[in-house]
Design a protein around this nucleic acid. Structure first.
Lengths: 161, 161
DNA sequence: TTTTGCAATGTTATACTATAACAATCTGGG
DNA sequence: CCCAGATTGTTATAGTATAACATTGCAAAA
């Protein structure tokens, strides 16, 4: 079960959501003999603070509230977390989000609301297959794909004029 | 017929390719009563110079070989060209490419070779439909999507060890 | 337990990408 | 011709990311 099932309801307990993400991260790093240091854990926590993409410099500002920190600190942590599959970069926003499917191999697919900035990581049925088959027609061998859909989320559609 | 049909063969006449893109641009701007000024035309030409994404500052350097130019000059031209649907931004590379389907409404889809940097704008059968239907399942209303696939192009696959 | 070597972090500087703000100039329609 | 809006010039600065090298921490080998 993914950590985030599409867009969240107002009754969504996000504290619990963050906790689960951190626990899962601990587990994954332990299994893969990688070190989820305090610094990395803190950055992951900050990225998970909202179901919205977070800029690296926003993370940095938070870190700086508890002591000194410089950009490389954040970018290194983010790089590690991306390599571990715990965080994704949203290319169209230059921002980062916690991965909803950590530990499960998958192609990242995002729905991003341009009204409220909320983001949902999804797995659209047959999308990866369609994409891979289509690429193969061109004789192309896909390795990594960026799929980011901008639009309006159900919550914002409901509130519309 | 698209200006670029998947990946190019070595016998591909790129001069001709650029010319067609410029002619099409002239036509589109004329019909839509927009001004394809010398500056904008030159930027479009530079973006089309290769079937690879080009950085804004690379374009700037070329412009500077023929007189002064500053970043806003390039970014304004690129913004205009994007709005006219003549150029796409490749989000995962912070770079720009000429649109292969100028004048035809479409969702942008790119195959990008990580070996040779060549890029093909494609229209993968049923991909947009699958994506839109999938988003609808989440109650999401898509407006614009970013689809960029990184991998190996047929040319580079042939040359592999 | 001490050593040791690599992993992680700190620190400073800088590269790269993009836009704000305002002045000057150009262009097409009245 | 004249004007209003569009385009371009110019300077400065915001925002994103990495290079390079010093220092510290940690865990396995001796």
């Amino acid at each position: 079960m993914p950590l985030s099932l599409s867009f969240q309801q107002s009754d969504h307990n996000h504290e619990h959501c963050i906790e689960r993400a951190l626990e899962r991260a601990e587990e994954l790093c332990r299994v893969q003999r990688q070190r989820l240091t305090a610094q990395r854990r803190r950055v992951l926590e900050l990225v998970w603070a909202q179901h919205k993409p977070v800029g690296a410099y926003a993370v940095l500002e938070e870190l700086q509230k508890q002591g000194r920190a410089a950009p490389p600190t954040v970018y290194r942590a983010l790089e590690f977390l991306q390599q571990m599959g715990l965080v994704h970069k949203i290319e169209s926003l230059n921002a980062y989000v916690g991965c909803a499917f950590a530990g499960q191999p998958h192609d990242a697919q995002f729905l991003i609301c341009e009204q409220c900035d909320e983001l949902a990581e999804v797995e659209i049925p047959r999308l990866s297959e369609t994409l891979n088959e289509g690429a193969a027609i061109s004789g192309f061998e896909p390795r990594r794909s960026t799929i980011e859909v901008l639009g309006l989320c159900p919550n914002c559609l409901d509130l519309r004029p």
